[in-house]
């Protein structure tokens, strides 16, 4: 498979050289087109920083992110239009990732407008249908929807420009337990039918198991383990991954 992402010695430091904190302290990996990669980590692991760098929403302190041959980490915003149409993020909490004062139709249509993507007039209705919402939903405001529906809206917005890559940052952890399964299923279906490359960042190993084939474990800005998801769950090699796995609360048999 063709290499799509190449991440080289990626570092991101917050708060200056002396007293700062390394959110990412040298991370290297590649992602092939069509691959489904899970990034596992707890708060403070640097996973959110990594998402922002992969989506070109932040700039690294050093190192670079190369997407399909283009160094996105130092590109000016004006050069990123094509990239943004191809790579779309979905954030954790749809209560905060949807502008409360915009109609759903405008929210979902925003990437089409801003990125000047050629589209038919019915495009917004189509993507809303793709995520299981009525086209009429476009006329309403985010607060009129449940948490799960709002995450569907956020996914619809990400799908609108027909991206190649979806980056999901904790896509279900802000949702109610029973809704999580539905959103995970929706993501799985979308990825399969559209042959999307998927990057899922989560502290929840079951989400990574259900959506990804390969996983990396991130701790304090470094990758401590990587490999197939099955192997990570069945026989983690690093001490950290082992304790992480052991800490998950599970029902007694």
């Amino acid at each position: 498979m063709a290499e799509l992402y190449r991440v080289e010695s990626l570092c991101r430091r917050f708060g200056g050289a002396a007293a700062g904190v390394d959110a990412l302290a040298g991370v290297d990996f590649q992602i092939a087109a069509g691959e489904r990669l899970g990034i596992v980590g707890e708060s403070g692991s640097g996973k959110t920083t990594l998402v922002r760098l992969l989506a070109a929403l932040d700039r690294p302190t050093s190192g670079r992110v190369v997407f399909d041959g283009m160094d996105t980490s130092n590109a000016p915003e004006s050069a990123l239009r094509r990239f943004r149409a191809r790579v779309q993020p979905v954030f954790q909490d749809p209560r905060s990732s949807l502008n409360p004062r915009m109609r759903v139709g405008d929210i979902v249509g925003e990437p089409l407008r801003s990125l000047r993507v050629a589209h038919t007039s019915g495009r917004v209705g189509e993507v809303l249908a793709d995520v299981g919402l009525e086209p009429e939903a476009g006329k309403r405001y985010p607060h009129e929807f449940s948490g799960g529906q709002r995450q569907r809206i956020a996914i619809a917005r990400a799908l609108a420009p027909e991206p190649q890559v979806l980056i999901a940052d904790e896509p279900v952890s802000a949702l109610d337990v029973l809704v999580r399964g539905q959103i995970v299923q929706l993501l799985a279906d979308l990825v399969a039918t559209r042959r999307l490359t998927l990057i899922v960042v989560s502290h929840d190993l079951s989400v990574v198991r259900d959506l990804c084939e390969r996983a990396m474990v991130l701790r304090q800005g470094k990758i401590v383990e990587r490999g197939p998801v099955g192997q990570l769950l069945a026989g983690p090699r690093s001490e950290y991954a082992r304790s992480l796995l052991a800490a998950i609360p599970e029902l007694p048999e």
């Binding site: 922002r52 929403l57 990123l80 993020p89 954030f91 905060s96 990732s97 949807l98 990437p111 990125l115």
Partner: peptide, 11 residues
Amino acid sequence: DYVLAARACGT
């Protein structure tokens, strides 16, 4: 987050 999302949309 909606500003972050908007930036990702190229706005």
